[in-house]
Each structure stands twice: as C-alpha cells, then as structure tokens.
C-alpha cells in the first residue's frame, strides 16, 4: 500500500485518552492527563514541551516500557502491552552498550531476534554506512564523540527494522554545533529510510527543522496544548523567515502556559 498521508488512513500510532499516574507511598503523581494523538505512517511528529513534563513517559508508554493508568496505546492496530521490536527507541548518549563495539551495538537487535549472522551483519553494515560511521565498526563507544555515539544509537534502532522510531531527546546532550550537524544528518537518513518517528525535544529550532507536525505539551500533568503542522520544504533553513515565524508561534503558545 502506498503512503498518501490521507486523513482516513489508519494511524500507525494511536493514543486514546491516555493518562499515567505514578503511585508512591505518600502521594500520587499524575504525569500524563488524557492525551489523545494519532500518528500516520512515515510521519515525523515532534513532542515539544518544557523540561520537566512527561515527554519521556509518553515515549515509554508507546514503547510499552510503561503501561497507561487509563486509556489505550495502539501501534499498528494492536494494543501495546510490552516492548517489542516493532518500536525502536533512541535514548540519550549513555544508552549504548559500553561493552559492545559499534557493530555489536548495531546488530544487537537482530541478534536478539535470532537473525542469522551473515544477514544481520550485512544489515548492520548498511546502517553503519548510512549514518556515516564506516571504519568505526570495531571501535568501542568510549572512543567515540557524543555525535558519533548518537549516530550509533540511530543505526542500532534502524537495524532492528522497527515500524516506529521513538527518539527521546537524542541530541539533548550535544553541543550546539554537533546538534545542528546531527539534525541535518537525521533528516537525510530519514529521507532515505522513511519511518514513523516520534521525536521528543525542548528545542523549538530542532522541532521546526525536523517535524511534519509539532505537538506542544503543557507542564505536568502533561496535556496536549496545541498542534502545529509544518509544511516548509525540506531540507529547511534555520534563518528562513517562514521558519522563524513558526518558532515565534511556538514560543507564543508556550508563554501562555505561564
């Protein structure tokens, strides 16, 4: 089936009135309140919100690492009850296995699923090349820069061939220059290997650069505050007036919260 981006198509990710409350001995902590969201196939959705809001919780709910207190999360029509290989997650830099080489990290997923060695090597190599790390296959993460580590993280998620890529502030720890570079790189990779992406950030520039659609979240308990479609042609230019205008809109919407 070809992708049309049509309105009536079944969404690949669907959050239906999802809430998440943590219980502890002394208090209940409501992190996510009644979030409903549909993401279409191969759409790049950015969840944008202030530092302490429940963005990571939302990612974990979609990944199946946590279950909603109420509501339902569906991926590809099936209710999410546990993590699965159809949803790849890219975390911040420290999530690489320090005891595995770059190759070991990238082929970890296929290996867990029992893909034969030759096949998974080829596949891993393809994505290592795609993120521009050829020649570093045998390096360990502690020899790589922050940007390179994150490339490995992206290749690792891709190599498992997930339907959905969940990215939790993957560039949050990088310096500004590396961050720009990685944003461009991710855009290129995504253009070449389209996947449905849910990307979390608190950087409006990053959001506008990457997103088809930006979901602006409130402080905890997190609700959806606003939604902005970004129709600018890719690759986008940070200094383009239209680009800046969208950033201004985002900031305006966020200021309202205060």
């Amino acid at each position: 089936m070809e992708h049309h981006g049509g309105v009536n198509k079944t969404p690949i990710i669907s959050l239906d009135h999802v809430s998440k409350t943590y219980l502890s001995v002394h208090k209940t902590n409501e992190v996510v309140r009644d979030v409903s969201l549909d993401v279409q196939e191969n759409e790049f959705v950015v969840l944008f919100g202030p530092g302490q809001c429940g963005k990571t919780t939302l990612i974990n709910l979609i990944a199946g690492l946590q279950l909603p207190t109420s509501g339902e999360v569906k991926v590809d029509g099936k209710t999410v009850t546990a993590p699965g290989p159809d949803r790849g997650v890219v975390y911040q830099t420290t999530a690489l296995f320090p005891f595995c080489t770059v190759m070991g990290n990238v082929e970890f997923g296929p290996k867990s699923r029992g893909v034969p060695k030759k096949q998974r090597r080829e596949r891993a190599q393809y994505f290592i090349d795609l993120v521009g790390l050829q020649g570093f296959e045998k390096s360990f993460p502690n020899r790589l820069s922050g940007g390179m580590r994150q490339r490995v993280g992206i290749a690792r998620a891709y190599a498992n061939d997930p339907k959905v890529m969940l990215m939790d502030e993957p560039f949050g720890h990088l310096d500004a220059q590396t961050r720009y570079m990685m944003e461009e790189e991710l855009e290129k990779i995504w253009q070449k290997e389209k996947r449905t992406v849910v990307f979390v950030t608190n950087n409006s520039e990053e959001a506008v650069y990457l997103a088809d659609r930006i979901i602006i979240l409130t402080n905890t308990p997190t609700r959806i505050k606003h939604e902005i479609k970004v129709d600018l042609p890719r690759p986008r230019v940070y200094s383009d007036p239209a680009f800046l205008e969208i950033r201004r809109q985002i900031e305006e919407i966020c200021d309202d919260t205060l």
Binding site: N60, A63, G64, L65, A82, P83, G84, P85, R87, G88, V89, Y91, T94, A95, F97, F108, G109, S112, R113, R156, N160
Partner: peptide, 12 residues
C-alpha cells in the same frame, strides 16, 4: 543501567 535493559527489551 535501566536504560540498557529497556533497550534490550525493545529489541525483544
């Protein structure tokens, strides 16, 4: 690290 276990879990 829990995050490493999460990664492994999402890999099945």
């Amino acid at each position: 690290k829990p995050v490493h276990l999460w990664v492994a879990q999402t890999f099945g």
